[in-house]
Nucleic acid binder design. Structure first.
Lengths: 190, 190
DNA sequence: ATTGTTTCTTGAAGTAGTTCAAGTTTTTTG
DNA sequence: CAAAAAACTTGAACTACTTCAAGAAACAAT
């Protein structure tokens, strides 16, 4: 039923049939329409989302009133504001669907009870969050060492399909330059 | 014996006396002299470090030959290159002591066997790596939204003692501006 | 104490990117 | 298929930072 998540989990741990059944019965698939938010600045994040189809983005609104995307979450990614989630503090971020998106949403309460029922899941989440942090380190490395154009070319090489799929101004802000500069890079006027 | 780590772990999970004993017997404290490296670019990270005293930094050498610090690890922080660690690929980073430093170093093998003996530790590492990732998201937010001077003032407000403790050029690169510009910010010539 | 090494400072010149404002194209929606 | 909304483009003026080169200060080691 929740085949996508189950497969992802089983890349890292092995589940008994009984555990799969528990998982299956405690997860709810939910559909989020394009442009809908699942988290806004100031709210406390108490849900984790696993994207099975579509795409979320995490963004902020800066002092100039411009949106800046900090992260995308496509198929097979978990997303939430972990700091708000763990520390019960208001979030600095918005999380929004940028396409019609299907997710498995888990509330903190059900998440904790799921971990009690299937302690092995702690391992799964431990491994993926360590890897996610590792990816975030690489992201900072790229931001520090590459020019705007290099960041764009590199991102496009690694994610050719994804680049086609999203508004270019969102990608520009994710790569930390302006929408106008993105336009110039793409035309080659830089 | 390894009181610092034990305390840190017990902020998140509760250990039985027997589990504490296992932990205690399987951990080794090690001392790293100032400027010594525990990881170099190209090597595969297969050790995790928990800093009990002193300070590590993770850095790269950019195309101009300048060192750029991506992260500091002080007391109570775990550090390694998680991407290299999990994927068995050569690291992009250096990890170096910037003071005489005491760490608990755990090799991948002993780490895995420790997790088998005390599965509860999965939970501990799950929680701290989620929080660490959360912190990394905030770091990217600050890099995106604040000017160089704002980043410096903010960092100094949050970590007044730490700023005193490290070479300013390392902090400059961590905040993503040049050592010269740091100097000008501090004097107020900007 | 003296020498070498590391870190910090200063100013002048340069540049990779931003900002603004306006127009154009593409996509979405009733 | 119109009309509205969203996304993209363009050029000109600007600026927050970098780079370079050289000297000064602080620190460490014999």
């Amino acid at each position: 039923m929740h085949a996508v998540l189950l497969e992802h989990i089983q890349k890292f741990i092995t589940l008994e049939p009984s555990e799969k059944a528990i998982l299956d019965s405690s997860l709810i698939l939910s559909k989020i329409k394009k442009k809908e938010h699942v988290l806004r600045e100031g709210e406390i994040a108490n849900t984790m989302y696993f994207v099975t189809k579509g795409c979320f983005r995490q963004y902020i609104i800066n002092t100039k009133g411009t949106e800046q995307t900090l992260q995308f979450a496509i198929e097979n990614w978990w997303i939430t504001d972990y700091l708000s989630y763990h520390n019960h503090v208001p979030s600095h971020f918005y999380i929004q669907a940028i396409e019609d998106t299907e997710v498995i949403a888990i509330e903190k309460k059900s998440f904790e009870s799921l971990l009690l029922q299937i302690p092995k899941l702690e391992r799964y989440f431990r491994i993926i969050s360590q890897k996610t942090f590792g990816a975030s380190q690489m992201r900072i490395k790229f931001l520090f060492t590459m020019s705007a154009e290099e960041r764009y070319r590199h991102f496009k090489n690694v994610n050719p399909d994804f680049v086609q799929r999203i508004p270019q101004y969102m990608l520009a802000s994710y790569l930390d330059f302006s929408a106008e500069f993105m336009s110039k890079i793409r035309v080659g006027k830089v």
